[in-house]
Design a protein around this nucleic acid. Structure first.
Length: 476
DNA sequence: ATGTTC
């Protein structure tokens, strides 16, 4: 993007004053280098979002922002239902409640390396990955409804996970307000055999070494120890979320004129929060959130089953589980007044600061763990929420490195085998059903996650806690 | 992201 089109607020904050129908300004958080590299489409998309009815304060883009469907990936926008605010299927994204969870181990790098290939093979064999992959769990109608209402709590009741995990999942693993009746037969059918599967794209299960600690106190509170390994899972709501996104997007495009909404971009299809369609979508989306929470809980359980075969004493306690594609009702201070807002985060992670009452007691003084999934080669980060993120971006931060190259361009540039071999030479074992998928996810197709995370920290969105380096990656 | 062009 051309930075001269922005008003520079600081080294890492850039503002676009309202123009051409914008109801609020747009703000992008990134260094000048990342801004320059950022897709021009981010400018169009972050300003188009600011044109939607009922937007509060500003339309935001995180340092990892890139071109998405309607909203930029890395976009944050909040709406007030009492001011005609909307909910947008494109503002949540197709992979509803896609997110990341990290389990702790006490295993050293050497212990993992001693069984690296066998462990990688076992994880790949036990955790279904790839487009449309199926698991062992088949849901009947009753089971589907229970899952859509219960989320991770349902998974635990079925024996896939442990009750203490719930402390470490947003909303204790269960989104309230889910409406299974708002989820179509088609969406249900697609999900019937997909529980406990990773899916594809940028989803993965990684065994990572805690390679660097930036904040000793917070790392200790989170249970992160330099030299020990963790297990991180990145996945979402599989076919169900995608089908819900597809169907409601279509319905929102068709009904927008009836609600008097002029769409700046068809892809920004939305409905008033207070409308029947808006409420129906919120009910379906929350059911999809529960699907994703249940899915990650089951995959965590599968990972535990594999690890115990190799290391009998390792029970993989859950450190945290957080989504980065959601619309959530939250209370935020606007001009000194607390208001209830519908916060869309699409490819953006909630990042509540210290003291937030939604955090479990053990984490509350330190801020929410913010799990950043980087690329296969460059590694990942754990950040902590900070108080300044609330006024800056409704308590949000980046979610990953962010793509710098399209999937298509990546496959033209790299071969999957070559990527696997290159990473093997760096001591990283990749297991995937799709070499093309691996090529699409080549580390070079992503921005420098270090620069993204440093930008987030400098912008006051989150604080660096730890850097994680992969040893094994099961790639969807 | 996605039964990867319902």
């Amino acid at each position: 993007m051309d930075v001269s089109r922005f008003e520079k607020l600081s080294e890492t904050a850039w503002r676009i004053a309202p123009f051409g129908g914008m109801r609020a300004p747009a703000i992008v958080y990134a260094t000048e280098d990342l801004m320059t590299e950022m897709d021009d489409k981010v400018f169009d998309q972050v300003t188009n979002v600011a044109k939607l009815p009922g937007i509060v304060r500003a339309s935001y883009a995180m340092p990892d922002a890139h071109w998405g469907y309607g909203f930029p990936i890395g976009g944050v926008a909040a709406f007030d239902a009492d001011e005609g605010g909307v909910v947008s299927a494109g503002g949540v994204g197709f992979d509803v409640s896609c997110g990341v969870r990290t389990h702790l181990t006490h295993l050293t790098r050497e212990q993992v390396v001693s069984v690296q290939q066998e462990l990688a093979d076992a994880l790949f064999e036990h955790v279904p990955a790839g487009v449309g992959s199926e698991g062992e769990i088949a849901l009947d109608e009753q089971g589907m409804n229970a899952m859509l209402l219960g989320g991770a709590q349902w998974a635990i009741e079925r024996g896939f996970g442990r009750p203490e995990d719930l402390d470490r999942i947003e909303e204790r693993g269960c989104a309230s307000g889910a409406d299974p009746a708002a989820v179509s037969e088609h969406a249900r059918k697609r999900q019937r055999r997909e529980m406990g599967t990773l899916g594809s794209g940028n989803h993965y299960l990684e065994v990572q070494e805690v390679a660097e600690i930036f904040d000793d106190e917070i790392a200790a509170a989170y249970g992160l120890v330099k030299g020990e390994c963790v297990v991180t899972i990145h996945c979402g709501s599989c076919g169900l979320g995608h089908q819900i996104g597809t169907e409601y997007l279509r319905e929102m495009v068709l009904s927008a004129p009836n609600y008097g909404i002029e769409l700046p971009d068809r892809e920004l299809a939305c409905a008033p929060i207070k409308s029947e369609l808006g409420q129906k979508y919120l009910g379906a989306m929350r059911a999809a959130i529960n699907c994703a929470l249940a899915n990650r809980e089951i995959i965590g359980h599968l990972a535990r089953q594999v690890f115990v075969r190799f290391f009998a004493q390792e029970d993989l306690p859950l450190m945290f589980d957080v989504s980065h594609n959601t619309c959530k009702v939250e209370r935020h201070a606007i001009d000194g007044e607390t208001r209830q807002l519908f916060v869309h985060r699409k490819g953006a992670t909630r990042a509540f600061g210290p003291g937030h009452d939604s955090l479990p007691e053990a984490l509350r003084p330190y801020g929410q763990p913010v799990l950043i999934g980087g690329s296969m080669g460059a590694g990942s980060y754990v950040l902590a929420g900070v108080k300044t993120s609330e006024p800056q971006a409704f308590s949000s931060a980046c979610h990953g490195a962010g793509r710098r190259m399209s999937r298509h361009a990546a496959t033209r540039t790299w071969g999957g085998r070559q990527v696997v071999d290159d990473l093997r030479a760096q001591g990283i074992i990749i297991k995937s059903p799709s070499l093309r998928g691996v090529a699409e996810e080549a580390p070079g197709a992503y921005k420098d996650v270090r620069a993204v995370v440093d930008s987030a920290e400098a912008a006051g969105l989150a604080r660096k806690v730890a850097f994680l380096k992969p040893l094994i990656c099961v790639k969807g």
